[in-house]
Design a protein around this nucleic acid. Structure first.
Lengths: 143, 143
DNA sequence: TAGCCTCTGATAAAGCATTACCGATTTGCG
DNA sequence: CGCAAATCGGTAATGCTTTATCAGAGGCTA
């Protein structure tokens, strides 16, 4: 059986208060203020136990390390701010997404992530950065 | 300037023939038949150069290592078969996806991945596997 | 064809996130 | 309260992908 420790409660409370998916490192920095001396290993341990309990689940964001959020009953998606790198929840979904697959393909679920700028003033008033690779060629052409 | 080597052409041809995103390791196994003795380091080198040239781009799939595909002009998405783990292209997109974000959020782009079973007979005739964690509690309840 | 410069293959090393380990501490039941 | 079992913090170790290194082979221009 699991014990109810201060450390584990700190991890869970951090996720509930934030209301958005966080990385283990992100959780660690916040939860440390709730449980001084908290170790990163304990954060990982707590996350695994909370997942086994069904209280927390993993969120995989393309181009970002795994995030964790409190388990949600309803279908939802995520938004990644390209400025502050924070992930937010999007409580909406358009119908027909599962009908996009080619004929003969069966869709079980889908994952949608929006990218852009969140509503934080610090993020709104800043230009984005994204390099576009130039088109070049091999020396003697292709063979 | 870049040379047009047999190895690099093998990597590029592998991606073009497959017509779907592949992992470096996946590319390696196929491209080796086009260029015997091909090293994995060369695959990574070729991919970086092809990306700099604008001929190839990265595809980030949630829950999967980075894939690479030949660069596409048109907007599209991806499908991950949960049986064979292969990624396919989905040449379609529903409108309104970018309107899902909360007020004050600016959407620049989005990433959509479908999960299910592809149309390969070997995949269609096989049950899926996905464990569902049981719900439990701490010993003394929460604090 | 000569010769310079790039590329290759093999492998060691780097980079990172996650996990194992262990002595010390804390929890929960009786 | 008292003890057995679970958990903690700190850190070394692991696992895996990607990169650096280097001697030798190969592509390209003149």
């Amino acid at each position: 059986m699991n014990y109810a420790t201060r450390q584990r409660s700190a991890v869970q409370k951090t996720l509930e208060d934030a209301g958005r998916p966080m990385t283990p490192a992100e959780i660690w920095t916040v939860a440390r203020s709730l449980s001084p001396g908290l170790g990163i290993a304990t954060v990982y341990r707590a996350l695994r136990i909370l997942m086994d309990m069904g209280a927390v689940e993993v969120v995989e964001i393309p181009g970002a390390p795994p995030h964790y959020e409190r388990k949600h009953p309803q279908h939802h998606h995520h938004f990644l701010c390209e400025h502050c790198q924070r992930v937010f929840e999007v409580e909406a979904c358009t119908s027909g997404i599962d009908q996009l697959a080619p004929a003969g393909f069966t869709v079980k679920r889908h994952s949608l992530t929006l990218y852009g700028v969140c509503n934080d003033p610090a993020c709104v008033n800043r230009p984005a950065q994204q390099a576009q690779p130039a088109v070049a060629q091999f020396a003697g052409g292709f063979r």
